[in-house]
Structures are given as structure tokens and as C-alpha cells.
Design a protein around this nucleic acid. Structure first.
Length: 639
DNA sequence: GTAGGGTTAG
């Protein structure tokens, strides 16, 4: 972990050579005089490094560079403003013989915001060695850095400094400390700091709640939430987002209702979260209501909100409305493009997805790894020619992030090009890019020597990894795998389970006459369950007559996301379909929403059901839409 | 003069 503290060599300060140091006077001229100085006024107008250099030159010409104030402001701007430049800030910082505490704090702050926050910790060490005592402003920046990079060990040492300096009772230091422990998974320590102090407000509560939420301890989080003396909008948002992130959409939406009843004004974050919950649970009606709520307020043209709306409509199957919103945007960011492309892909409109991607390439928005993944899965249907196009896009990417390598590798592996995937991973290694656990998951689906890879890889318990791993395995369940690999899969699953990954129970909902009915695996609570199970028996009988043989092999059960109950015929989607068949008129389209991906068995069964009962069945699973008709599915058995 | 908790795409 050796990281450069010195800035890149291509930068240079105006007039001053790098060997010239600022030796600052003991005190600055009067503050008011400096504050209103025109050169410093221009600082806030800078929009590029060039502008910045001009202002810097001006500051030197007017002699201001010999003041703490001007240098502080320059460093602050360079380090923090989006138009600044951290490398320049560091160059400037290194030129100061004896930086004061304010300057130290601001350069540390800048580094804590950067993509390389470890530099902030290195600077802290230097600050101490130089004999500058940190204060209550220094520590929040440091703890934020530790939280960002998972530096618990370093965080604990810095905690000791806080105790030594008697700063434990500063509210900002206190909360950032709790947050550091909570973010780094040390919930016991976070709780200890929280419990030991009398400093308890919505902010410190929320920091702890978020920690519990991130580890899936929703009940503990909720208990804390109920204890908050005065809840503010952020604490509500955190709790609502917690429910939405772990798939408990109904609770998320119920809490949003409670929030409104408590007369707390929702803000942009609230609405983005609520829309995400609507999108994921398929609650298009509530989503509609949210849209009008937004439009009646000043939030209407907010890009993030419109992105969330586009996503909500496309995930609910209303591509037309989604596209209308997309076309109406004056400015689009990478998320706008990605949600719209993803919307088309999920509905099997691959040509539209790729056409939109072509438009994106002509816009000024650079595609990222998420775009690439979406485009790749669209290409997978449209033949090798388009896959070549995706490869071309990848090859032309200016900045290939680890994520984009991963997207390409897993894309190739999952879409029938395992050899290319493995070759690409070798290329990646040759470029000096270290693979991570996600690369591994991608490769696992292509690789014949998973054993070797596993030994070299540290898996992190992450839901995304978990599901992509299972997805990779499922797809390859059809591609004749060597039996040995399933052992690897089982072992990884055990490791993840031991690390605290909780399985989300499968659940399918169906709306009939405006009422949403929910079914879980082997449901025992629905009032009409007797009739439902009776219908299920009939379905199974007819399926058997039609020649359907459920696959009960170890492989399928292993990868099935509702494997726990083992009852293949009682999966929630089949229960919901059975309910749909008995509670709607013949010929009516059945629409269901599942919180997980549909399993292979249910998918095959549903295809046949659509034929036997002459019903169109539109199933939305976690990843995409399946439109079953006449024994076929729109996804063409790829999902 | 600087500081703490929440937010969308996969």
C-alpha cells in the first residue's frame, strides 16, 4: 500500500520553482482585508486548472501568496472544488514550509474526498510528526477516509488520538467515529462508542442504523430508529432505504406513509428511494402517484428523479412512458442512458437497446461498465456481429476501469464465449490490473480450473456477487459442467453463508381487481390457499400429461434461489400463477412480479402452462421480464 | 475560515 503523496510531475506551479518554499509569517494581515481581495474572489469562478493557474499567478503578483489565508483558500479550492485539482493542491501544499493547522486540515479533507483516501492518513502521520496538533475538524476527515477504505486498524489508532486529546465529546468527531466502525462492519465497537456517550441525536442514531442496515440487521436498525428522539428527513430516508435495499418494499413504502403522516417533508433522496422501491416491487400505481407528487413541487425537472422515474416505468413494463420521459430530458447522464437501455433489454427489445446505444455513442456521455453489461446481453441475441461491436466499444474505451474489464469478462463468459473470457482475463493481468472477486465470479462461469482461482481469491460477502455467482452457475447448468466445479460452488456458498449472507425468501405478487396478493414458498397463510393448492395439483397433473419432468437433480437445486424448501412445485411464482388461473377469466393475461430470479424449473413449467391453459403470462423477476405465450418465452430461455 | 448520518443504473 505505497501511495504517492507527491503530485504528478507534469504539474508545475507558476513562477515558483519546486525548490522554492513558502515561508509564512507568524500572522496574516487583517482578515477582512484578505477576505474581500479581488484575486480570491476570482478563485470561486475557476472552471479549470488553467483558470486556477491564472488566479494563482495573480495571487503571487499581488504578494498574497505570503499569507496563510490565500494559501489556505487556494488549497481548499484545489482540493475540494470539482473544478479544482488535488495534485495541484498537494504541489502547493508541499511548497509550504510550515503549514498551519487549517491548511493541514484542508489538504487532509481534500485527500479524504479523493479516490485515494489513504493519502489523508499518510498526511495525518506527517502532521503529527511535524508537531501540529490535530483538532476536532481533523478527525471527521480521517474517520471518513478510514470508512471509505475499510481501514479499521488505522481507525482504531486514530480513535486513540481522539481519546488522548479529549475530543470524544465533540459531536462531529463522535458521529464520524461511530460511522467509521459501523461502515467497517465493527458493529460492536460502533455500538460501544454510541452507548458510552450522552451525545445522541438523529445524526449519530442514523450512523449506527446504517451500519445495522448494511449487515442486514433490520430489526435492530428499526428498534434504534424508533428510539430516535427527534427524527429528521435523513433518518427517515436511511430507514426507508434500508428496507428498500433488502427487498422489503412493502415496509419501505409503509414507512414512507408514516413519514408523511409525521409531517416530515420528503426530499429528493426520499423520492429516489421510494421510486426505487416501486420499481423493484412493480408498484406502478404508487410510482404514478409519486410522479404527480414530484411534478406538483419544484423537484420536477431534477435529473436524478427523472432517472428514477424512467427506471420505475421501464421496470414496470411501461417502456413508452419511460421513453417519453427520457426524450424529454434536456440533459442526460450515464444513468439516464443505462436505465433506458436496460429497460429495452429487460423487455427483450434488443434492437431498440442497441439503437439507443448507438445514439449514446454519438452523445457526449461516456458509456461505463454498466452500459457495457447491458449492451453485451443485448448483443448475445443478435449474433456474433454485434458481439464484435461490443468488443470494439470495449477496446475503444478511454479509461478501462476494473469494473469494465469485469463486465466484458463476465459478459463473454455468460454469453457463450468462455475462451474469449479467459483470454481477456490474461490480457487484463498483462496490463497489470489486479482481478477482484467479481472478476473471479465472471471467470468461474467460463473457467475449467476454478480450484486454482479460488485459492487466490478473497471473497467478500456481497449480495451482488452472490447472485451473479448463482446466475453464472445456472446458465452453465445447461452447458455440461464437470462435476468438480459444483463442489467449488457449494464451498463458496458455504463461505458466504458463514460470513453472514442472509438469503432473501422468495416471494411473488399478483394483482387481481386492484388487490395485491403475495405468495411465499409453500405458502401457508393466503386465505384461498386450499383452492390454490388444488389448482396446483391440477397444473402438475396436466404438466405431467404434457410430458414435463421436473428436474430434481442436485445441480438445479443447488442453484435454485428458493432451494431451501426443496419443494419445486410450491415455488411462489407457481402459487401466484395458480391463484391467477382460478381468480381471473379464461384468456386474461396473468401478470406476476417475483422478488428473485425465476428458477429454471418454474421457467420451463410456466412455458407449458401458457400453452396448456392458453394464457399469456407476464412475469417480472428480479432481472427482467418474461413474456410466456404458446409454450415459448420472450427471453428465449436466456436470463 | 474547515466538520458528523441518507439517494438512482448493474
Amino acid at each position: 500500500m505505497v501511495l504517492p503523496v507527491s503530485p504528478s510531475s507534469s504539474l508545475s506551479l507558476p513562477i515558483l520553482s519546486s525548490s522554492t518554499h513558502h515561508i509564512l509569517p507568524a500572522s496574516d494581515p487583517p482578515y477582512k482585508l484578505l477576505q474581500s481581495h479581488p484575486s480570491l474572489h476570482f478563485l470561486s469562478k475557476c472552471k479549470s486548472l488553467q483558470d486556477l493557474k491564472q488566479v494563482h499567478s495573480q495571487i503571487i503578483k499581488t504578494g498574497l501568496h505570503n499569507t496563510h489565508f490565500a494559501l489556505s483558500k487556494l488549497i481548499e479550492f484545489c482540493a475540494i472544488s470539482p473544478y479544482g485539482d488535488l495534485a495541484y493542491a498537494l504541489l502547493l501544499f508541499e511548497s509550504i514550509e510550515e503549514p498551519n493547522r487549517f491548511i493541514w486540515n484542508n489538504i487532509i479533507r481534500g485527500c479524504s474526498l479523493s479516490s485515494n483516501p489513504i493519502v489523508a492518513l499518510e498526511l495525518f502521520v506527517r502532521m503529527i510528526l511535524c508537531g501540529t496538533e490535530p483538532n476536532s475538524y481533523t478527525f471527521p476527515f480521517l474517520f471518513k477516509s478510514c470508512a471509505k477504505i475499510g481501514a479499521t486498524h488505522e481507525g482504531k489508532q486514530i480513535h486513540a488520538h481522539v481519546v488522548k486529546l479529549g475530543l470524544e465529546n465533540d459531536a462531529f468527531v463522535h458521529t464520524s467515529l461511530i460511522n467509521m466502525y459501523a461502515q467497517n462492519g465493527e458493529l460492536g465497537n460502533a455500538r460501544l462508542v454510541f452507548d458510552k456517550s450522552t451525545l445522541r441525536d438523529a445524526v449519530s442514531f442514523t450512523a449506527l442504523i446504517t451500519g445495522y442496515v448494511s449487515r442486514g440487521f433490520m430489526d435492530d436498525a428499526r428498534r434504534l430508529f424508533n428510539e430516535i428522539p427527534v427524527r429528521d428527513v435523513v433518518s427517515w430516508n436511511a430507514m426507508i432505504a434500508g428496507y428498500a435495499q433488502c427487498g422489503r418494499f412493502e415496509e419501505a413504502l409503509a414507512l414512507f406513509e408514516e413519514m408523511r403522516k409525521a409531517n416530515v417533508q420528503p426530499d429528493e433522496s426520499t423520492m429516489v428511494t421510494v421510486l426505487s422501491a416501486c420499481a423493484q416491487s412493480g408498484s406502478v400505481e404508487l410510482g404514478n402517484w409519486v410522479q404527480s407528487w414530484i411534478e406538483n413541487r419544484v423537484l420536477g425537472s431534477n435529473l436524478r428523479l427523472v432517472n428514477a422515474l424512467i427506471d420505475m416505468y421501464s421496470k414496470c413494463g411501461d417502456l413508452e412512458t419511460a421513453r417519453g420521459l427520457f426524450d424529454g430530458l434536456h440533459q442526460r447522464d450515464v444513468i439516464s442512458w443505462n436505465v433506458m437501455i436496460g429497460g429495452y433489454t429487460k423487455m427483450s427489445c434488443y434492437k431498440e437497446a442497441l439503437t439507443l446505444f448507438q445514439l449514446m455513442l454519438r452523445s457526449n456521455v461516456e458509456p461505463n461498465d454498466v452500459t457495457l453489461l447491458g449492451v453485451l446481453s443485448a448483443c448475445a441475441y443478435l449474433g456474433a456481429l454485434d458481439l464484435d461491436a461490443a468488443e470494439q466499444v470495449f477496446n475503444n474505451m478511454n479509461l478501462k476501469s476494473l469494473a469494465s474489464w469485469n463486465a466484458m469478462i463476465s459478459g463473454l463468459a455468460m454469453h457463450g464465449h468462455p475462451d474469449k473470457a479467459i483470454r481477456l482475463s490474461e490480457e487484463m493481468a498483462n496490463e497489470g490490473i489486479k482481478p477482484d472477486d467479481i472478476t473471479f465470479v465472471g471467470l468461474l462461469s467460463a473457467c475449467t480450473h476454478a480450484e486454482t482461482l479460488m485459492k487466490n481469491m478473497e471473497m467478500k460477502p456481497d449480495g451482488a456477487i452472490w447472485s451473479s455467482l448463482l446466475g453464472a452457475c445456472r446458465v452453465h447448468g445447461r452447458v455440461e459442467l464437470g462435476a468438480g466445479r459444483w463442489d467449488d460452488v457449494a464451498r463458496i456458498r458455504n463461505r458466504l453463508t458463514n460470513m453472514g449472507m442472509k438469503k432473501v425468501p422468495g416471494c411473488t405478487s399478483i394483482e387481481v381487481d386492484g388487490v395485491v396478493h403475495e405468495f411465499v414458498v409453500s405458502d401457508k397463510v393466503h386465505p384461498l390457499r386450499k383452492d390454490v393448492y388444488k389448482m396446483l395439483d391440477e397444473i402438475d397433473r396436466l404438466l405431467e400429461v404434457a410430458g414435463f419432468v421436473p428436474d430434481t437433480s442436485e445441480v438445479l437445486r443447488d442453484i435454485d434461489e428458493e432451494w431451501k424448501e426443496g419443494a419445486l412445485s410450491h415455488h411462489s411464482e407457481k402459487l401466484a400463477i395458480a391463484f391467477g388461473l382460478i381468480s381471473t377469466k379464461p384468456g386474461t393475461t396473468i401478470r406476476i412480479v417475483k422478488n428473485l430470479r425465476v428458477c429454471g424449473n418454474c421457467h420451463s413449467a410456466t412455458k407449458l402452462i401458457s400453452k396448456i391453459f392458453n394464457r399469456e403470462i407476464i412475469a417480472r423477476d428480479k432481472n427482467r421480464f418474461h413474456h410466456f405465450k404458446d409454450g415459448f418465452c420472450s427471453c428465449r430461455d436466456y436470463w
